[in-house]
Simulated scan of single mutants.
Amino acid sequence: MAIEKVRNHLAQWHVEHKIQELEESSATVELAAQALGCEPERIAKSLSFLVNDGAVLIVAAGDAKIDNAKFKAVFGTKAKMLARDDVEKMIGHDVGGVCPFGVNEGVAIYLDDSLKRFTTVFPACGSSNSAIEVTISELEAYTPYKEWVDVCKGWND
């Protein structure tokens, strides 16, 4: 089960006990914000893309949308989201619980600049009813990310 992979991953920093398992679904930004009682933009959504036959995860603020021109400038290709049926197989978590913790080997993870405006954010934890509140520096520490990128729009207009 993916939440157990996340729990094991976060145990390296002794923070697995901070995972919140919710009564309600947190599968979308809106549902997660409602269940957690926070602003939707503070949900750190993880978006799955196919780049050069490999999986790429972009972690962005809940109110950010992928900017196709920025994405192409960074990755050299058009933004193509993974098909729903490929997400769990390629990322290691199913749609609704995708997060940057405990992902499959070879998944390239990037953090989007849209997150930097918050003190804390709420990424999912491998299931459609889980989340953890982390600071930006904790997100950096717990995530094997490659780099910060600017591939989103709609959040700083």
Rank of each mutant, 00 (worst) to 15 (best):
K5C: 12
R117S: 12
F49I: 10
E39K: 12
A83P: 01
F75N: 09
I136T: 05
S26G: 15
A33Q: 08
D150E: 12
G97W: 05
L31H: 11
S137G: 04
A73W: 00
V95G: 05
V149L: 08
K146P: 03
G97H: 04
M1G: 13
K45H: 12
S130E: 12
G126L: 09
L50Y: 00
A55V: 09
E41A: 13
G102Y: 10
V56C: 09
D67K: 02
L115T: 03
D86M: 13
D85Y: 03
V98Q: 01
D53A: 13
E21L: 11
F49G: 09
R84D: 15
E133T: 03
D53G: 07
V6S: 02
T77A: 14
Y110K: 04
Y142W: 14
R117Q: 13
Y145T: 13
E4R: 09
F101M: 10
V149H: 09
I43Y: 02
L57F: 04
L57T: 10
I132L: 02
T28W: 04
G154C: 04
A11R: 14
E21M: 11
F101Q: 06
K116N: 05
V87Y: 01
E39H: 11
V134R: 01
G37L: 08
R42N: 06
L50G: 11
I66H: 05
N52M: 10
D113T: 14
E23K: 14
V6Y: 05
L139Q: 07
L36S: 10
L57I: 14
Q12R: 15
I3N: 10
